[in-house]
Design a protein around this nucleic acid. Structure first.
Length: 911
RNA sequence: GGGCGUUUAGCUCAGUUGGUUUAGAGCAUCUGCUUUACACGCAGAGGGUCGGGGGUUCAAGUCCCUCAACGCCCACCA
């Protein structure tokens, strides 16, 4: 074994072994535990967000697998409608080809080609991190099975009257030429203008009403001017007609509550086809909307001379013309919220169009209830509010997209009913297949019915919403569905609570009658070291694959886990992975150190049954009880939902417990104490010595075996490698999670508290010696003579019995242990529990320095005593605080008083 | 405009239901180490009074109010 752990050598090997062993597949008759992966886009490349998100899932899955659950981590990818279509379009553009040149069928074939060629990239990248997804069950949202689920859901929702087609004002992306859902629009603040325009009265052009707008180019779609009924300024104008400048068209002045007298001029133009508020106003007043724009965001025939101009050029031209005509009353700078398409970044136009919608209220109500009833819980809990606030307004979901890549809507227009053409009033049938559609159309409209399928595809999120059950085979009744739905925990980021989480919950309830997961864990966002989001355009991303190459997959995983505290964003920089790498190296070396002795005593974990309480050294008992504590902490921290209903998923806490135990307790203390015994040359030992060595090695083997098991979810590769090095044949990944009962088994439990106490005190003696060594900058080569003075005989006996612990942790020449011994000349004093410590420093001791050191400590102790005395002198404290708290404070005071006395004595001794 | 989060050593962060820590860790800094598992290491040390202000309480980093800074999300661009 090399002194440096080289992850590169073993990661690929173990991943292959695990896969060949089928270790990732659900097995056995244990209780199922299921996680569905948030499917990455097929176009995606692995980023740190994926690394974090999936490491969390893998930690849980491996933990539960070791606990004996029948685990399924269901993987897959998302077809990502717009994103994927854009990628392929861009690629074609390089060859000078437009998708329209190819036609729909050929273009879609091209996208499939692209998917088949590059779609596995992200999957392969996920594998590099060791993720134990059941890859044999890899799914894609456009697979035949999942598409079947999509059609089934569409048909059923339609049958239930929850899907309808209608003309509504929707968000239109002119660049992508498709409708968008509300959540797909991002508002961004931007500089703009607020123009006030005079609309002359029809019957008296000398008089006018001034309206204010940020979008003058929509004026050709105006159908009214609204004022507030209470607004004195305009009362005399209500009911009159005004002429839209540049046209002959006149519109009425109406009253509506929407007109706010405090905003602008108080009079507002009403453009129902191009503004969401105006749309509502128009409905209230029965005003027919007028569309003034084409789908490519150029003005249409309503705009007269501006026809054909794009919206931004037209705006400039119109404003200039108004100014010339003297109709521009005012111009004001203004910050406006520009609605942008989340994919293309183009300015979204509200547009009146025929689209398909899902009626949300009947679906949302039960989805709110499961959260109310705690059947699904958000961690952190605050996201419950985010979820609720989004669902509660019950806004219908626009699900149709004018794209080619996606699930084509399973609706067929009976064009034969409208003269062979598809018109707005053409009837349609919705069915699971074209054959079914045909049959139904024939039944309804006769044998001459001619069908044309709806061209629109469904919103990508429509299929992702079904992910927890479509991936398991629904609508078929598969064994997987039977066992693994509902799933357990969903782990994702806050960005897709609306898009995805909410929709999975209502879909799961609607079609399977149960919420799809009991816990939704929302992790933080990975930021760069300055706290900015990582993005391609900023170029501030950290590539996980590069980090794996540099530090190893285990190091990347471990660092991310130690940084994951509930819901907190993570400021990341490459140096953070050093923690993980160093930790792996530490563990590696501990094993490397003891391994030869495991072999030469043949006391590997296989024949450990001879471990018995009587033979155990104090350090053995101590490390075993620390191990039990660590097992308990890690187990409880990882549990998603404790028996008492408490939330676990404290990843950082678990990782830190493992780190501390391994580094501080196991390596720094335990191994150092037992080093001599463990490494003693077997051939030179007496029978007793050999037995002691075997004991020590057995304890080491026991601890390391349990330790690598509970560490395995975090660092799967190195732990599997160590397991094999220990001579175990069975794979660690499918072994057993340990119970925190080793001490109990060995009969240590009854005395463990005392052991812990003694050990802690002994370690404090070592600390005191080391502290003096440090203060005098004495190198380890300088062996110290230590005199330990105990306050009483029983304690002296214990210290005497465990002198070897002190000796092994600190280079001492002689250690003598007495009771109330006098301070030797030329010695430095140290404070230890139930005693005093003297280090002989003849020729080294600097009384002045010693005085400074002791005085400083005395000051601290005296300050504490004063504070404690004051506290305990406070009658209301003694009266109101619980007895044990008061008692605790009293004993603290006592021990500090003791300390003060000893320090004073030490100072007096200095002379 | 509304909602949420953050503010604790130079930096990055822990700190459960207020009281066993006179505030912890890692990194960085300083000192001493070729101690034969590990310099991706060992030992020691310095460094915060917990954003500001007010309040509740015997007791507050921990609860309440308020102010400030930073960040995120949502909101009809009249």
């Amino acid at each position: 074994m090399d002194s440096r752990y080289s992850p590169q050598d073993i990661e690929e090997k173990w991943y292959r072994v695990w896969r060949e062993a089928g270790a990732f597949e659900p097995k056995g008759t244990g209780k199922p535990f299921t996680i569905v992966i948030p499917p990455p886009n097929v176009t995606g490349a692995l980023h740190m967000g994926h690394a974090l998100n999936n490491t969390l899932q893998d930690v849980l899955i491996r933990f539960k697998r070791l606990q004996g659950y029948r685990t399924l981590w269901q993987p897959g990818t998302d077809h990502a409608g717009i994103a994927t279509q854009s990628v392929v379009e861009k690629q074609l553009a390089k060859e000078g080809v437009k998708r329209q040149d190819l036609g729909r069928e050929k273009f879609v074939a091209k996208v499939w080609e692209w998917k088949n060629e590059y779609g596995d990239r992200i999957v392969n990248q996920l594998m590099r991190l060791g993720f134990s997804c059941d890859w044999s069950r890899l799914r894609f949202t456009m697979d035949e099975g999942l598409s079947k689920a999509v059609r089934e859901v569409f048909v059923r929702l339609h049958e239930d009257g929850l899907i309808y087609r209608g003309t509504r004002l929707i968000n239109w992306c002119p660049k992508l030429q498709t409708a968008l859902a509300d959540e797909e629009v991002e508002n961004k603040e931007s500089k703009g203008f607020f123009w006030s325009i005079r609309y002359p009265l029809a019957d008296n052009p000398a008089e006018s009403i001034t309206v204010s707008t940020t979008r003058p180019e929509t004026m050709f779609g105006d159908v009214a001017v609204a004022v507030n009924a209470e607004d004195e300024r305009y009362k005399h104008l209500i009911g009159k007609q005004v002429r839209i400048p540049g046209t002959d068209r006149t519109i009425p002045i109406i009253t509506d509550e929407h007109a706010d007298p405090t905003k602008g001029t108080g009079a507002v133009k009403i453009t129902p086809a191009h503004d969401f508020n105006d749309y509502e106003v128009g409905k209230r007043h029965n005003l027919k909307p007028i569309i003034a724009m084409n789908l490519d965001a150029t003005l249409n025939h309503m705009a007269g001379k501006y026809q054909g101009m794009n919206r931004f050029d037209a705006r400039k031209a119109i404003v200039a013309d108004l100014e010339t005509a003297g109709l521009l009353a005012a111009v004001e700078d203004r910050l406006i919220q520009l609605p942008l398409c989340y994919r293309s970044g183009d300015v979204v136009e509200p547009y009146l169009l025929d689209q398909w919608f899902v009626d949300m209220k009947p679906l949302a109500v039960p989805a709110l209830e499961v959260v109310e009833r705690d059947e699904t819980r958000f961690v952190p809990a605050r996201y419950t509010k985010t979820y609720r606030d989004w669902l509660e307004p019950f806004k219908d979901w626009c699900i149709s997209r004018q794209l080619w890549w996606g699930h084509q809507i399973p609706a067929w227009y009976v064009v034969s009913e409208t003269g062979g053409a598809r018109r707005q009033d053409t009837p349609f049938v919705v069915a699971r297949s074209e054959t079914d559609a045909q049959a139904e159309a024939v039944k309804k409209y006769g044998p001459q019915a001619v069908l044309v399928q709806e061209e629109d595809v469904l919103d990508t999120w429509f299929s992702s919403a079904l992910w927890p059950f479509s991936t398991l085979g629904w609508p078929d009744k598969t064994p997987e569905l039977e066992k693994h739905y509902p799933t357990d925990v969903l782990i994702t980021d806050r960005g897709i609570i609306y898009f995805w989480v909410a929709r999975m919950i209502f879909s799961g309830i609607k079609f399977l009658g149960k919420t799809p997961f009991h816990t939704v864990y929302i992790h933080g966002t990975i930021l760069d070291e300055k706290g900015q989001r990582m993005s391609k355009s900023k170029g501030n991303g950290i590539d996980p694959i590069e980090m794996i190459g540099k530090y190893g997959a285990d190091a990347v995983r471990f660092a991310l886990m130690i940084l994951t505290t509930e819901g907190q964003d993570i400021k990341l920089s490459p140096v953070k992975f050093e923690t993980g790498r160093n930790f792996a190296n530490k563990l590696w070396n501990a094993v490397r150190f003891v391994l030869p002795h495991l072999e030469d005593t043949a006391s590997g974990s296989s024949n450990r049954e001879d471990l018995s309480y009587d033979d155990l050294h104090l350090a053995d008992r101590w490390i075993l009880s620390r191990l039990d504590e660590t097992i308990k902490t890690v187990t409880e921290s990882l549990e998603p939902r404790g028996a008492d209903g408490s939330s676990g998923l404290r990843f950082s806490e678990a990782a830190q417990a493992l780190y501390r135990f391994t580094w501080d307790d196991f390596c720094s203390s335990y191994l150092e104490i037992r080093k001599k015994v463990i490494t003693a040359e077997a051939a030179t030992l007496s029978p007793e010595g050999l037995a002691a060595k075997k004991q020590a090695v057995s304890v080491f083997a026991t601890v390391i075996e349990k330790l690598i098991t509970i560490l395995h979810p975090f660092m799967p590769f190195i732990t599997e490698e160590i397991r094999q090095a220990l001579g175990q044949k069975e794979l660690l990944i499918t072994s057993q999670w340990p119970a925190a009962d080793i001490c109990k088994q060995l009969g240590i439990e009854s005395s463990s508290e005392h052991d812990l106490e003694v050990m802690t005190k002994l370690l404090k003696i070592v600390d005191a010696i080391r502290s003096i060594r440090g203060d005098y900058s004495l190198p380890p080569s300088h062996a110290l003579d230590a005199r330990i003075s105990c306050d009483d005989e029983p304690w002296r006996k214990i210290v005497e019995a465990h002198k070897d612990i002190i000796d092994s942790l600190e280079r001492v020449g002689t250690v003598s242990v007495g009771v109330n011994t006098a301070k030797p000349a030329f010695s430095a004093s140290g404070l230890i529990p139930e005693g005093r410590l003297f280090i002989l420093l003849e020729g080294i001791l600097d009384p002045a320095q010693e005085k400074v050191r002791l005085t400083k400590e005395l000051g601290k102790a005296e300050g504490f005593v004063a504070a404690q005395e004051k506290k305990l002198a406070n009658e209301s404290f003694v009266k109101s605080a619980p007895a044990e708290v008061v008692e605790g404070e009293r004993s603290k005071l006592q021990s500090q008083r003791d300390k003060v006395e000893k320090l004073k004595a030490a100072l007096a001794d200095l002379g």
